[in-house]
Design a protein around this nucleic acid. Sequence first.
DNA 1: AATTTGACTTATG
DNA 2: CCATAAGCCAAAT
Length: 104
Amino acid sequence: MQTDKLTGRAFDDEVYAVVAQIPAGKIVSYKQIARLIGMPDHARRVGRAMASAPAELPCHRVVNSAGRTAPGWPQQRELLEKEGVRFKANGCADVVRFMWEEIL
DNA sequence: AATTTGACTTATG
DNA sequence: CCATAAGCCAAAT
């Protein structure tokens, strides 16, 4: 293994793999994904990956640390609610109950 | 190549 | 809830 350089396409590819495995009715933060792929400090990179992610990905299950939906995409909330995710009055998902925790 | 920008996070007010 | 600040890193300009 020459390097762990998950840079460029490799990083995004890992991100897509993780997002594809998020169980329905659950949410996960960018930082959490970054952590799962071994790069906890690249939360931003994850977001950028999503911005360019294929529509097949359940990217609607990816929210920020506060359970907030992505900017410019308010419909994300509707999609999550349809999967059983409850939202708080402040417009944030109830991360206390729906944040994904299958981290090994 | 340097600067700006961004689907981030945490903390503070 | 929104604004600002500082930390963080890579892609876009």
